[in-house]
Deep mutational scan, measured.
Amino acid sequence: MTSCHIAEEHIQKVAIFGGTHGNELTGVFLVKHWLENGAEIQRTGLEVKPFITNPRAVKKCTRYIDCDLNRIFDLENLGKKMSEDLPYEVRRAQEINHLFGPKDSEDSYDIIFDLHNTTSNMGCTLILEDSRNNFLIQMFHYIKTSLAPLPCYVYLIEHPSLKYATTRSIAKYPVGIEVGPQPQGVLRADILDQMRKMIKHALDFIHHFNEGKEFPPCAIEVYKIIEKVDYPRDENGEIAAIIHPNLQDQDWKPLHPGDPMFLTLDGKTIPLGGDCTVYPVFVNEAAYYEKKEAFAKTTKLTLNAKSIRCCLH
């Protein structure tokens, strides 16, 4: 018999989150649709729960009410004593943790798909938090293969000092899905179709896995975050240069030392320094102006996964 890495157990509980950011409308629209008619997301033997994560922000069509829901799922915020004085999103995070967690427990949901849009030209993107997770690498390989020839990129946010504390991190297997470009507060049919297909293929993978299909060893190309880059700023902290036209919409493309990065209003080009080629992502993302992030630098690498098969009882 072929030796293989056996994944822990079959997958039982899956959640699909929309509206973690209330103005990213593809996930909101799909989740609302699936709450009314969820036939397309159901798979035999699998509990799939669509869920609106930040209903107040969705109602106002804004990213958040008090603070970013997708950055506060750490033990400090989840452990705060519940009171009306807490920011709305912290209270909501505790409610979500109660419903789908608790985080880092045996009772937490197996998989959470968190649906997002970006204003950046990132196409279909899967966000991975753990480079050693054979199950998710296999799932992402399946999704990428199923979507081809449509490109699907994998963004690895594993980093020693950049801690995200994402909404989906309460699950055993957290999956971020990011599709763009799409303006905030807008629905685009092409973007919706791409996100819908990503979810379909992900659920198909889980179904095949649960039925005992063995997935042979595989490898995927990923883009691992190195650092986030702020806009150049003046002495008052105001933005002093904008994304250069040569960099705009060039997510995932190589940016070499000396290539144009920013452009000042008086026409001066600010190039990339250093001696390493990087791959920019979230270029000129609207939501990241407040976070002082013009783009993120990534490096390209390959992740390998062992063969996996479900432990059938």
Rank of each mutant, 00 (worst) to 15 (best):
270 I>Q: 06
63 R>H: 10
46 L>K: 00
240 A>Q: 14
179 V>S: 04
49 K>M: 15
186 V>G: 03
26 T>S: 09
120 S>V: 02
149 P>I: 01
233 R>V: 08
34 W>D: 01
104 D>E: 12
196 R>E: 02
70 N>Y: 05
226 I>N: 08
120 S>I: 01
60 K>P: 06
271 P>G: 10
244 H>R: 01
84 E>N: 07
76 E>H: 10
243 I>T: 04
115 L>I: 09
271 P>I: 10
244 H>Q: 01
228 K>G: 12
174 P>Q: 08
313 H>S: 07
48 V>K: 01
119 T>D: 04
164 Y>F: 12
49 K>F: 06
35 L>K: 13
41 I>L: 07
38 G>F: 15
162 L>H: 12
278 V>Y: 12
34 W>K: 03
77 N>T: 12
116 H>V: 00
287 A>C: 10
144 K>Y: 04
293 E>W: 14
74 D>L: 06
35 L>P: 00
201 H>D: 02
290 E>F: 08
83 S>R: 14
47 E>A: 07
74 D>I: 06
61 C>I: 15
84 E>W: 15
107 D>A: 15
239 I>N: 05
180 G>M: 02
224 K>L: 02
267 G>M: 08
18 G>E: 03
295 F>W: 06
141 H>L: 02
300 K>S: 05
312 L>I: 09
254 P>C: 09
148 A>N: 15
206 I>P: 00
301 L>Q: 09
11 I>P: 06
139 M>S: 01
17 F>I: 09
213 K>G: 09
138 Q>P: 00
228 K>F: 15
221 E>G: 04
177 I>H: 02
102 P>Q: 13
150 L>K: 14
64 Y>M: 09
266 D>Q: 07
98 H>A: 12
250 Q>F: 05
244 H>F: 00
263 L>F: 13
51 F>P: 01
286 A>C: 12
235 E>C: 13
172 K>F: 03
96 I>R: 06
62 T>R: 11
75 L>M: 10
156 L>E: 04
247 L>H: 02
221 E>S: 04
3 S>G: 14
25 L>G: 15
167 T>K: 08
284 N>V: 03
22 G>H: 11
258 G>L: 07
307 S>Q: 06
25 L>I: 14
183 P>G: 11
95 E>R: 13
70 N>Q: 09
255 L>D: 01
60 K>E: 13
